[in-house]
Write a protein that binds this DNA or RNA. Structure first.
Ligand code: NAD
Ligand code: NAD
Lengths: 225, 225
DNA sequence: CCGCGATTGTACCTGCAATCACAAACGCGG
DNA sequence: CCGCGTTTGTGATTGCAGGTACAATCGCGG
C-alpha cells in the first residue's frame, strides 16, 4: 500500500548499534515536543527538555546525536523540525493499524480512546470470544469473533496488537495473533508471555508500579492479607 | 497543611544501598511466583524463573541475595516461602488504600477491576470534577467531588493515587493530591508531571510502548499524517 | 565586523549493572 | 556414610549507560 519501503532488513539482524534504551526515550521526547508545540513555542534546548523531563541535558543531546545533528549551537532545537525528525525515526509519521483482543472493561475503554490517532495509531479491529459481545459497536469498530483474527490481520497488514484478555487466556491468544502475522504485542494481562524471538512484547501492569512504590513507603495499609 | 499524615522517609536518605532497578524487578518475580503457586508447584529454581521471564538465572539470584538467603543449594526456592518474603520486602503483605481521580472511560475500568486486591491494593475512592459524574456508583465506591480529596486522603492515610484525568488537568490535580498527603502517583495522562523531590511518580502510556515498537518495524502503516 | 553569551555535539571518564565462574551446600541413591 | 548431580550465593570481570567537560558554532548587539 504505501511503499517508499526503505530497505527493510530482518529486524533481528540489523539492530543498528543504537541502544534500545535510547529508542525507549525517544517517545518521551516526542511527547514533550508536541506539548511545547501546543504551547506555541518555536525552539527549545536540551536544558529545557531535560528540566521538563527530569533528566540531564547531556543525555538528551547524546541520544539525539545518534540520529543526526538536529540542533543549532547557541540556539537549540527547532521544535516542529525536531518533532518531525523523531516521528520519522520512530516511523510514526503516519498511522499504524492496531488490532485488539478482549472487549471487557479495559478493552472498551481503550477502543473508545481518542488519543491514539494523532500519535500514530488507530485501533482497527476488536475481537472477543464471548458470543454476547460479538457485534457490539464501539465507536467506529465492531466486536468480532476470534476466527476473524487471521483474516483481518492479513488484510490490514497489521503488525501490532493489544492484548486485553484475562491472564489465563493471554498465552493462547498471543499464539493466535502471532500465527496471523502480528509481531508486536502490548500485553495488559499480568503474565509474562512466551513468544518466538522475532516477536516483541511489552507489558502494562499497574500493580507492578504500585508494588515498586510501596517498597519506599512506610507501612500504613488497611489490613493484613 | 498535611501534618500527621504518614510521611515518607525522604526516599533519598533511606535508599538502602539496594539499586532501584533491582526493586523494580521484584514485583515481576512476585507475579510469577503467584502463577507457579496457582499451578501447585512447591519449589522452583532461578533457572526456571529466568526461563519464564526471559532473564538470566544469575540476575535473579543476585537480586534476591540483596535481601537474604532464601534458597537451598541443590534444591532451589520454596515457592510459598519466597512469595511471602517478597511480599514483606515490597510491603504488600497487606492491602494499601489507593485513591483515584478521573471517572472517565479509563477510570471506571480501573475502578471496577478486581485484580488489585489480591496483590495488595484497593481503590477506596474515586473523584471527578464533572457535576454529572458525582454520586455515580461503581462497584463499592461512589464518585466524589474534588473537594473531598483532602478529607478522604487524610482519613484513610492514603499515600498512593492514580491519575486518570485529561493531560491538561493532570498537573493541577497532582498538586492537589500532594498537598493532601499523597506521595506516590501512578499517572495515566500522557504528560510528565512536575512534583517535589519526595514524591514518586510512575507513568503508564500505551503510546510510548507502541512508538518504541514501531522503531523496529518495517513501515506498513495506513496513511501519512 | 568583532566579541560575547548561549548551546550543541562529542571525546573521555566514571560507575554501576549484568554476566561469568566457582566454591560451598544440599538431597539422594547406593 | 560417601560420592554425584544440582543449585545457590558471591567475588571477579565485562560491558555499557550516563555524566563531565570543552572545542566548535551560532545569533546578536554594539
Ligand atoms: N480493567 C482494568 O482496569 C485492568 C487493569 C489492569 C489490568 N487489566 C488486565 O487486562 C485484562 C482485561 O481486563 P478487563 O478488566 O477488561 O477484564 P474483563 O473480564 O472485563 O474482560 C475480559 C474480556 O476478554 C474476553 N475473553 C476472555 N477469554 C478470551 C479469549 N480466550 N479470547 C478472547 N477474548 C477473551 C472476555 O469475553 C471479556 O470480554 C486482564 O488480563 C486484566 O488483568 C485490566
Ligand atoms: N481511555 C483509555 O483507554 C486511555 C488510554 C491511555 C491513556 N489514557 C489517558 O487517561 C486519562 C483519562 O482518559 P479517559 O479516556 O478516561 O478520559 P475521559 O475523558 O473519558 O475521562 C476523563 C475524566 O476526567 C474528568 N476530569 C476532567 N478534568 C478534571 C479535573 N480537573 N479534575 C478531576 N477530574 C477531571 C472528566 O470529568 C472525566 O470524567 C487521559 O489523560 C488519557 O489520555 C486513557
Amino acid at each position: 500500500m504505501n511503499e517508499p519501503a526503505p530497505q527493510v532488513e530482518p529486524q533481528d539482524s540489523v539492530r543498528n548499534d543504537i541502544p534500545d534504551i535510547v529508542i525507549g526515550r525517544l517517545p518521551i521526547y516526542l511527547r514533550t515536543l508536541k506539548l511545547l508545540m501546543e504551547r506555541g513555542s518555536e525552539v527549545t534546548s536540551s536544558q529545557e527538555l531535560g528540566d521538563l523531563l527530569g533528566i540531564s541535558s547531556a543525555q538528551i543531546r547524546k541520544d539525539l546525536s545518534h540520529f543526526g545533528e538536529f540542533g543549532k549551537q547557541g540556539t537549540g532545537y527547532n521544535i516542529p523540525f525536531l518533532n518531525k525528525q523523531l516521528e520519522k525515526i520512530l516511523k510514526v509519521d503516519c498511522v499504524w493499524p492496531v488490532v485488539m483482543v478482549g472487549a471487557g472493561n479495559l478493552g472498551t475503554a481503550l477502543a473508545s480512546y481518542n488519543g491514539f490517532e494523532n500519535r500514530g495509531f488507530r485501533i482497527v479491529a476488536l475481537f472477543d470470544s464471548a458470543p454476547e459481545k460479538i457485534g457490539q459497536q464501539l465507536g467506529a469498530i465492531t466486536v468480532q469473533p476470534l476466527e476473524e483474527i487471521p483474516v483481518v490481520v492479513r488484510r490490514t497488514h497489521c503488525q501490532v496488537a493489544v492484548l486485553a484478555v484475562p491472564a489465563a487466556a493471554a498465552q493462547a491468544v498471543s499464539a493466535l495473533l502471532i500465527e496471523s502475522g502480528i509481531n508486536s504485542i502490548l500485553c495488559y494481562a499480568p503474565i509474562t508471555l512466551s513468544v518466538p524471538e522475532n516477536v516483541r512484547v511489552e507489558y502494562i501492569d499497574p500493580v507492578i508500579h504500585f508494588q515498586h512504590m510501596t517498597y519506599y513507603l512506610r507501612k500504613g495499609c488497611i489490613e493484613d492479607a
